[in-house]
Each structure stands twice: as C-alpha cells, then as structure tokens.
C-alpha cells in the first residue's frame, strides 16, 4: 500500500509538472494575447515527433535541445503569418484558427510518421533504475523528466520575477489592457510569447515521448485535459494553472493505479448489482480514470465558476 502510494505520488507529480509545462505556456499566451491556443497540445505532439526524428538522426541530447526550438520556431511563424492576420477578426476567429490548425498538424504528422506509434526510446544513458521503492524499480528517465520540468519551472519563475520582460508579462497578467501600452514592440513580444509558449509545450513532448506513446492521436488525447487544467485553475492565472496541473496529475494517476470498484466495496453488503447502475458495478476506478478530469471540471464549475484561483472574467 505504502509502496503504491509513494510511487503514485511520484508519478502524479511528474504528470502534473508535465501538464504545467504546457499549461504555463498556454496561460501566458492567453493572458497576454487573449488568444486561447487550441493547438497547444499539437505543439506538444510536434515536440515528441521532432524529438523522435532528431534523436534518430543526431542522438537524444541534440534532439532534446533542437526539437523544442524547432517547434517553438514553427509556433512563432504561425503567430507571425497566421494569427496576426486573423487578429482583426476578433478572438473567436483566433480561437477557430488554432482549432483548424489542430486538424492540419494532426494530418501532417500522420502523413509523415503514419498512424501507428513510433519507436521513440529512452536514451541508453538514462536507461537504468534510479532507486527502488520497496519492490518497485523507479526508472532514472522519469527522474530526469521530473528534474527537467522542475528546472524549467524554476527558470520560468526567475524570469517572471527577476527580469524586465517578466515584469511586463506579470503586469499583462493582472491588467490585460496594459499590454496595449507597452509601445511599439507589442507584435514582437506577442511572437516571442507564442514561440516560447509553444516551445515549452514541445519540451514536454520531447521528454514525455519516450515514456509515453508517441503517436498521432496524442494531441487529441491530451488537449482537452490541458483545457480542463486551465479552466479549473482559473483562466489566465499562472498559480491556478500550477495548482490545477498538480491536482489533476495526482488525481488521475491515483485513479489509474486503483482497482477498486463498486462491486468490490459494496459487494460484501449487497449481493448483486442494482439494475440502474449495472454498468458501473464492475468498473474499476482505473477504468473511469479518463472521465475523472472532466468530472472534476464540472464539480469545480458548480462550486467556483471562475476556477480555483481565477479572478478575471472573460
């Protein structure tokens, strides 16, 4: 039991930090530009596939650096030549543009790498057991993922609190209208923010790819969870995104690891399944894990419509 709890906690933290890597970029973009980047998870996917391809050609470490740069570069280009043209049609058009982009990226990825999972492997240099909890061997690669995510988190924190551009971004987070007053370099800042935001998502893709399945549906699977994270945290709140990322990471990981079911819990006191909930009777918590983030979303919305730490009404 203790073994399960400690391993799940680690895995949950890891998943949560990866979510936050993506959610932070998404929140930054949303807060500064007012654009909800529907294609954010697509850049995560691009990161994973670029990571796979580049590590195939150059080895893991060059890929680790180059893949996010490439994906972020594409992000910046999308902002420069796509979003900027749509900007005058308003936020709905911007959101729809990125929505269309998810289709295009998914199809392109399928066209180049196919629909089946690609063989994106943990690099040999990290392919060993970091430590053993009771009887579970915890892989070093996961520790590397966690360390990377935390390192980026710290860098982001430092940039936001210690640098000029960070202060501008913070001001923009609390006073969205102020962005307009930043002066002549607004378009440049937007492009930068979009590039960095999508690049962060790609980092998550590069490091998560070998541990998870690198496949063309990974964006479609993760995207909605990402949006749940930022709505639960409160749209536009970085701290909220952080809390919600960890919350959802932990809750979902524990759900996956649990094989409790209604039959198991109530079986001793109730002989059979009541007809109304027959479907739910034998389902284990692990099987309902995909539903959990969305249930959480609905619950939070009923209790706190603005999200956990949300203040801004959009």
């Amino acid at each position: 039991m203790l073994e399960l709890v400690s391993v799940s906690t680690l895995n949950g933290l890891l998943y949560g930090m990866l979510l936050f890597l993506m959610a932070s970029g998404l929140t930054l973009i949303f807060s500064m530009m007012g654009v909800l980047n529907f294609a954010h998870a697509s850049f995560y996917m691009l990161g994973a596939f670029f990571g796979f391809q580049l590590s195939h050609w150059l080895g893991f470490w060059p890929a680790f650096v180059l893949a996010p740069l490439a994906a972020g570069g594409i992000g910046a280009l999308v902002e420069r030549y796509g979003l900027r043209a749509v900007h005058r049609h308003g936020h709905v058009a911007e959101l729809l543009f990125t929505f269309g982009l998810t289709f295009v990226i998914q199809e392109l990825v399928q066209m180049v790498w196919g629909k089946l999972p690609v063989d994106y492997r943990v690099p040999p240099s990290l392919d060993f057991t970091a430590f053993t909890v009771f009887s579970t061997n915890y892989p070093a690669y996961k520790m590397f993922e966690l360390a990377t995510a935390i390192a980026i988190f710290l860098v982001l924190l430092a940039v936001l609190t210690r640098t000029r551009i960070g202060l501008i971004i913070q001001a923009a987070l609390t006073h969205p209208n102020m962005v307009a007053m930043l002066g002549h370099n607004v378009p440049r800042i937007f492009m930068l923010v979009f590039g960095v935001g999508t690049g962060l998502a790609a980092v998550a893709g590069v490091i998560a790819g070998p541990a998870l399945v690198t496949q063309s549906d990974m964006a479609a699977l993760l995207g909605p969870i990402l949006f749940v994270v930022i709505v639960v945290g409160g749209l536009g709140s970085l701290a909220g995104a952080f809390v919600a990322s960890l919350l959802i990471g932990l809750v979902q990981t524990f759900a996956v690891a649990s094989n409790a079911s209604l039959a198991g819990v109530l079986g001793p006191i109730m002989p059979g399944a009541p007809a109304a909930i027959r479907d739910l009777w034998d389902v284990t918590v692990a099987q309902v894990a995909p539903v959990v983030p969305y249930l959480l979303l609905v619950m939070i919305l009923i209790l706190r419509p603005a999200g956990l730490l949300g203040t801004r009404d959009t």
Partner: peptide, 14 residues
C-alpha cells in the same frame, strides 16, 4: 466567451 468554449469542450469529453 472563451470560458464557455472550454467548458463545452470539457463536457463533450465527459
């Protein structure tokens, strides 16, 4: 606005 859009997505996935 955007919040509605995201919530509709979440409920769809639910």
């Amino acid at each position: 606005g955007t919040a509605f859009a995201m919530i509709s997505l979440g409920i769809g996935e639910l």
